[in-house]
Design a protein around this nucleic acid. Structure first.
Lengths: 305, 305
DNA sequence: TTTTATGCGTCGTATTTCTTGACGTATCGA
DNA sequence: TCGATACGTCAAGAAATACGACGCATAAAA
């Protein structure tokens, strides 16, 4: 109180979070009141009043009390004072809530807009499974997993040493060394039923050349589209000269190609379903093949030694 | 353990959050120490010590101090005491961080595992645009948007009244009444460049029959797949008797079909790229068509009156 | 119109929470 | 062996917050 310059920059974590909450509600809901703050943070109404006054000192032009609505409302001159105004983050939380991955109380949302997230739900990943995989990655150890392969009826056990996670087309995978096959492979997380710690020292993940090395996917709009639509597609993906260079790990090129139908020959699908095409597919396939060979050889040398 | 009434249930929000933080770190990182808590919450080490003691009283079997590592580590008997152990939520945060939508400091992660999220980034949605759309949804008002249509060169202005948001294939759309066309349409959020409040009263969103009414998509494994793989696919999507009934809004059926190549005739694509097929496509198309007609007629009646 | 309920704000005092400073212990590595 | 760095605890003081009391403005119900 005696100090002046500390007024605008709250130092303590609880107060800072409450002020961020006010900012958040103003931004996304356009309104906030004392009761909201009290309910969210379990504080007294007096303290909430004080917080609102504090926020008003910080950003005087952001809100005004509307006696009719009995609440603070966002002004037209509002400008975010404390929060990152990332729409992606906001939308991501909507997905999380709509999908049941988060409770609304965990977020700072008040009223949600009408939202629909329609997806084909797949078997979820057990948190215990994920935990064990993360431990194995962190400790560079091997685990024995029960894996539901697509080509076998019963669950098979595999001994693997995961070293990274990756995500594509709403599926999560572990990139892992397979002791059984003596090479590196991908394991769909939601196909892993059980995880058990086992001993043994896995091959170093540096040998996973398909993971370490990247290739540039050359992507362009489908030439079968009308020129105006090609321009639109180019703009949407931020292409320059109708071309986009996307560096991806060799081991992930397949998934990205599959996701966007880049692995289908032009003409097979209607152009509307294949807005972008891959311009250097032979190079990509070749690079992948040769690094896969080199990786296997390197592993063999390391094991033989 | 000994004392029950006040010790085990932390009442105040700041303390509760700190205890949750301890639980979170133990679960996902397997370790936590005094410094972590001090750095995250801006508290003194003494207070952090007290919090750790508090947590240990809450869940005595969850952690043990390892003098060698100079840190608390998770025990094998660990069981989450305070946090929801949702792996989806954890993985979602990984995506958010890897995509730059969240800062690592905003989350409670310590060391992240090696992660790669490779996606084709599209033009992001401006937060101001999203804010205005949300306001319009909440207040049932019309806005004039600058829209980058795929079939026109320059941005066109449209007068719309959005009433819901929906998400599919990593794109967000607004479902809105179009004053120009006198029907309900979808607007890709990242194609909206500007939003301006305008007057006028839109048609009631109840008339959006394609949004209100749902249809059951009958989905089954691709019959061209070997039987064993069909079983695997059925298990992955939680089908019963090789069939899945997925209720979706009529207006969203198109997107879901497109996402999973359900709108491609069986045989055109290799079965591996089309693991599931739509069994009742004529019904879906028919339902959509007729409700679209009915909706237009209802709007006309309401306007003429 | 009056009444009642529900927003908000503020003042002074009590209480809880957290910090500060001082001091002690165990482990590791130079 | 020494210094650095983890941990822990105790006691006093500062800061944050709660509690109780009171006043003001608006809207909806009586």
């Amino acid at each position: 109180m005696a100090v002046e310059n500390s007024d605008d920059a709250p130092q303590k974590w609880p107060l800072r979070k409450r002020l961020e909450f006010i900012d958040f509600r103003l931004f996304w809901n356009g309104r906030v009141n004392r009761g909201d703050i009290r309910d969210t943070f379990d504080i007294s109404v007096q303290q909430a009043s004080s917080d609102l006054a504090h926020y008003e000192r910080l950003a005087p032009r952001n809100m005004v009390y509307d006696r009719g609505q009995k609440t603070y409302v966002r002004t037209d001159t509002y400008h975010p004072a404390l929060i990152e105004r990332s729409s992606e983050r906001f939308l991501l939380q909507l997905v999380a809530i709509d999908s049941g991955w988060m409770q609304r109380e965990e977020t700072w949302f008040d009223q949600l807009p009408p939202v629909d997230v329609t997806t084909l739900k797949r078997r979820p990943t057990g948190s215990r499974v994920l935990l064990e995989i993360l431990d194995a990655i962190r400790n560079h150890t091997q685990v024995e997993i029960g894996y539901r392969s697509l080509t076998e009826t019963a669950d098979a056990t595999r001994t693997i040493a995961p070293h990274a996670l990756f995500y594509n087309s709403s599926r999560w995978y572990a990139r892992a060394y397979s002791a059984d096959h003596e090479d590196f492979r991908d394991y769909n997380l939601n196909r892993i039923g059980t995880v058990r710690k086992v001993g043994g020292i896995p091959a170093d993940s540096d040998f996973d050349y398909e993971w370490v090395h990247t290739v540039d996917l050359e992507i362009g709009p489908n030439p079968e589209l009308p020129p105006i639509q090609q321009e639109g597609v180019a703009a949407e993906y931020g292409m320059t000269d109708n071309k986009l260079l996307l560096p991806v790990r060799l081991s992930m090129a397949f998934y990205l190609m599959s996701e966007h139908n880049l692995d289908v020959d032009v003409g097979v699908l209607p152009a509307a379903k294949q807005q972008i095409v891959l311009l250097n597919r032979p190079d990509v396939d070749q690079a992948r093949k040769s690094f896969r060979q080199l990786s296997k050889q390197a592993i063999k040398r390391a094991l033989g030694k």
